Amino acid sequence: MSIQILTAAVVRDTGVTHAVARTAVTSVFDAIARSLAVGETITISNFGTFAPVTLRERRSHNPATGAPLTAPETVVPRFRARGRLRDMVRDQDPTASVRKLPAGRYARR
């Protein structure tokens, strides 16, 4: 799934313009990335947790020459599904919703 498809889903589900939806989608991803970059953990109820994880230094080898080398310690982002998202994936139910939408303007059409 791409940002374009996510943006189209926001437009379809909320009725906002494409420009507003694109701004909202990219803002969410930017906020998550900035938080991870400074070492913060992001928890979204019934969806999951994004967290920076430190991978320890390890020994490896150059695949071309076979020469040993040391891969340095590094920080990578990790995601753990939680709640309804985990249940939806486990049950393979694409019709379910991670959250219930409020009635009115933002209700599903």
Rank of each mutant, 00 (worst) to 15 (best):
Q4S: 15
Q4T: 14
I5N: 10
I5P: 02
L6C: 10
T7F: 09
A8N: 12
V11L: 07
V11F: 06
R12G: 04
R12M: 10
D13V: 07
D13C: 06
T14V: 03
G15V: 03
T17M: 01
T17G: 15
H18E: 13
H18Q: 14
H18I: 05
H18G: 08
V20N: 14
V20W: 11
R22C: 03
R22F: 07
R22D: 14
T23Q: 10
T23I: 09
T23N: 05
A24D: 06
A24H: 06
A24K: 05
V25C: 07
T26L: 12
S27A: 15
V28E: 00
F29R: 13
D30Y: 07
D30N: 14
A31S: 15
A31W: 12
A31P: 08
S35T: 13
L36S: 14
A37E: 03
V38L: 09
V38Y: 08
E40R: 07
T41Y: 03
T41V: 13
I42F: 05
I42Q: 00
I44D: 00
N46Q: 13
G48K: 00
T49S: 06
F50P: 05
F50A: 04
F50L: 05
A51Y: 04
A51S: 13
A51W: 00
A51R: 04
T54L: 02
T54N: 03
L55F: 11
E57L: 00
R58M: 02
R58F: 14
R59W: 09
S60G: 15
S60Y: 10
H61P: 01
H61G: 02
P63R: 00
A64E: 06
T65Y: 01
G66D: 02
A67K: 11
T70D: 02
P72G: 10
E73K: 00
T74F: 11
T74V: 14
T74G: 12
V76Q: 12
P77M: 05
P77W: 11
P77F: 11
R80K: 12
A81P: 08
A81V: 07
R82S: 12
R82V: 15
L85C: 08
D87G: 01
D87W: 12
M88N: 11
D93E: 05
A96I: 00
S97Y: 07
V98A: 03
R99G: 11
R99E: 14
L101A: 13
P102M: 04
P102H: 08
P102Y: 09
A103F: 13
G104A: 08
G104Q: 07
R105M: 08
R105G: 03
R105P: 08
Y106A: 12
Y106M: 15
A107C: 13
A107E: 15
R108S: 03
R108G: 00
R108H: 11
R109P: 15
R109Q: 12
